[in-house]
Design a protein around this nucleic acid. Sequence first.
DNA 1: GTCTATATAAGGATAGAC
DNA 2: GTCTATCCTTATATAGAC
Lengths: 188, 188
Amino acid sequence: MNSKELIFQAAAKLFREKGYAATSMRELATQVGLEASSLYNHIKSKEEILQEICLRNAGKFTAGMKIIQDISNLNALQKLESIIRLHVVIASEDISSVTVFNDEWKHLKEPVLSNFLKQRKQYEQSVKVILQEGIEQELLKKVDIEVALFSFLTSLRWIHYKFAKGRISSERLTENLKTILIFGLANS
Amino acid sequence: MNSKELIFQAAAKLFREKGYAATSMRELATQVGLEASSLYNHIKSKEEILQEICLRNAGKFTAGMKIIQDISNLNALQKLESIIRLHVVIASEDISSVTVFNDEWKHLKEPVLSNFLKQRKQYEQSVKVILQEGIEQELLKKVDIEVALFSFLTSLRWIHYKFAKGRISSERLTENLKTILIFGLANS
DNA sequence: GTCTATATAAGGATAGAC
DNA sequence: GTCTATCCTTATATAGAC
């Protein structure tokens, strides 16, 4: 891995633990074994690091969603399951990075911020369409789409917690989330 | 409302929008119509504001949980429903403050941080006991308790989103969350 | 590509006049 | 209780030697 990638990785870890604004370039430099000024031979600015982390993850989710949409023989339930798996896989690949993507995007500056929010909105819209499809086909209950959307996605937004703390496998996590989020906690 | 409370309120709004670390005392002062130095006639430090916001909300959740536990004739499903209502009510009372409580606690310093985390752990433990009860009584499916706990609580941790963006009533939100989180999205 | 030194800005917080 | 002035620290980022 080159210096730039090592910096991104160390930055993701720090941004996750302390938050973007509370992380200094001096701390980051120490983590990668350099002086602060030396970082600027590899990156343009602190902001650039955040942009890279956020946009890379946005790209992963967008690409994953496109694949799910393109598999035409999945019904709404199977699509939701695929989305759960997508979130678990991305979180398992790089926990720190996806946490920064989730929690620190608000420190992005224009015009990157608008670009980021547009992508997120589009992703949410894709999930919304699947939920609507499911309700129309009577595969899903007639719930408020907005509440379902936010409840579903925010549950998935915190998957990294489990990987960070626990020793649960991707498969078991996916299976459990599928049961809980789609079929509910209650015994029916 | 006295000056101190006005400062807390303005601070919660700013901390929520920009994050604790990215909010300056000068900005906060401007919001309440003062110079930065004048704030210190009402509060001891920036940190004290965060402490107040976090501990007040922690207190609300702890108190609410105690009441739910004390109602002895509720079964696990009814207790979970009560917890949903508790989160909706607290979020509806003061959206900014509860968001700061959720997202900015990591900037607390010791010994307050440990105290805060202890309270949070205790709250999670209470929910866990209810989930275990529900599984033992076969009211709930045999899911991984940790996944159920985190999935349930994190869904509720983002309720403020709905109040901020939408025009949904507390009653309708509670009802929808109950359906989704307890009985699942899927039609059974 | 890394370092030391430094420019420049902004941060939290205090002193003391009114 | 609020102000102006300021202390002191820390921040991002650049310049220029090696």
